[in-house]
Amino acid sequence: MQRFSCPFCGLRDEREFHFAGEAGKTRPDTTQDVSDKEWANYLFFCKNTKGPTREIWVHTTCQEYFIMERDSVTMEVLGTTAMRKDTA
């Protein structure tokens, strides 16, 4: 059992979290023409990195989406950061 740190709730059981996708992808600009290839890359293709990764996760109990940096071989969590912008 692992515990992940939700930026909002703190350390919680891994079962409360869901992997949402790889971080760093940019949604195609739909005000321009978007090719099938660009959509496919955005929707389906990914790096699936072996080793240190940056991923988007969601804490399902509070619905906070955040960035988690992990090592996909050792499963060590390297850090989590909120995706929300500061409202202040």
Binding site: M1, Q2, D13, E14, R15, H18, F19, N48, K50, G51, T53, E55, S72, V73, T74, M75
Partner: peptide, 13 residues
Amino acid sequence: DRIPSYAQRGNTP
């Protein structure tokens, strides 16, 4: 297992 992984071992949940 629901966590993407290259480790050839599983988790307890």
